[in-house]
Computed example of a mutant assay.
Amino acid sequence: MFTLYVIDTCDTCRKARKALEANGVPFKTHDLRKDGLSASLLEHLLERAPLLEVVNKRSKTWRDLPQEDKDSLDANSARQLLLQHPTLLKRPLLDTGSGALKVGYRDGDYDKISG
């Protein structure tokens, strides 16, 4: 079963969820804000997508970080920031259970995925 990592208030996450439902794809959701982000889950996600690809530098959370944190971003500090602020993860994240993690969503991205 697929896992869709979301934040419930995110419009793009809602679109991704609807696209999976429309294609009859069985999936479960994991709300990063409500369900949390553990170190082991973060590592699981990072095994499937590059670290810099999953940090959302367009988010309000990123903009609100101290400039010092942004300037000194490296693999270790990024992991710590993601654990402290799960909303820094780009979303939605679609984990198909095999191979790469699909980061983000644009209309049509899930059209070839079937249940």
Rank of each mutant, 00 (worst) to 15 (best):
F2G: 01
T9K: 13
T3R: 15
L89I: 11
V103Q: 04
A75H: 07
K90G: 07
A39E: 14
Y105V: 00
F2P: 09
R48M: 13
A39K: 11
T87L: 11
D11T: 14
D31L: 06
T3W: 03
L37I: 13
R91P: 09
P50N: 14
L45W: 08
Y110T: 00
L65N: 09
R33I: 15
L65I: 08
D74S: 14
A49D: 04
F2K: 12
A22Y: 02
L93G: 11
P50I: 09
N23G: 12
H30C: 07
F27S: 01
S77N: 07
R91L: 09
L88T: 11
P86V: 12
V25H: 00
R58E: 07
L101W: 00
L46N: 07
V55M: 12
L41P: 04
W62N: 10
V103T: 05
K34D: 11
H85Y: 13
K34A: 15
R79Q: 13
L73Y: 01
G36C: 09
L42A: 10
K60Y: 10
E53P: 01
R79S: 10
L52P: 05
S40L: 12
A49Q: 06
T9S: 15
F27E: 02
H30G: 07
L52R: 14
H44G: 06
Q67W: 01
G104K: 00
R58Y: 06
L89D: 09
L65T: 09
L94Q: 07
L4K: 03
D8N: 15
P92N: 01
